[in-house]
Amino acid sequence: MAKRNKLEIIRDILRIIQKNHPIKPTPLLRMSNISSSRFKGYYSELLEKEFVKETYGKNKKITLTEKGYRYLEKYSAIINFIDEFEL
């Protein structure tokens, strides 16, 4: 399997959250298929960019925000654009 780039990893994490909405941090880490230290980095970036939000009930759970959905919606346009101009 080819090494995923940053944009692909973010897309995969967001897709996992979308499919298992809302999801706890531990299963999300497991399903993301990356090391926990890299996951922490990506997860803080997702929180910082407001692609995901944490909700606190009995347990901490993660859900997608509107920006997160927008990223998934725009992902193929982003990749096509980067590919077209070799950015």
Binding site: Y71, K74, F81, I82, E86, L87
Partner: peptide, 17 residues
């Protein structure tokens, strides 16, 4: 027109383009 793509990704290539 490329503002949203950059905001979503913070991609360096898009930024300089």
């Amino acid at each position: 027109g490329t503002k949203e793509l950059y905001k979503l990704t913070s991609h360096k290539g898009i930024k300089y383009f």
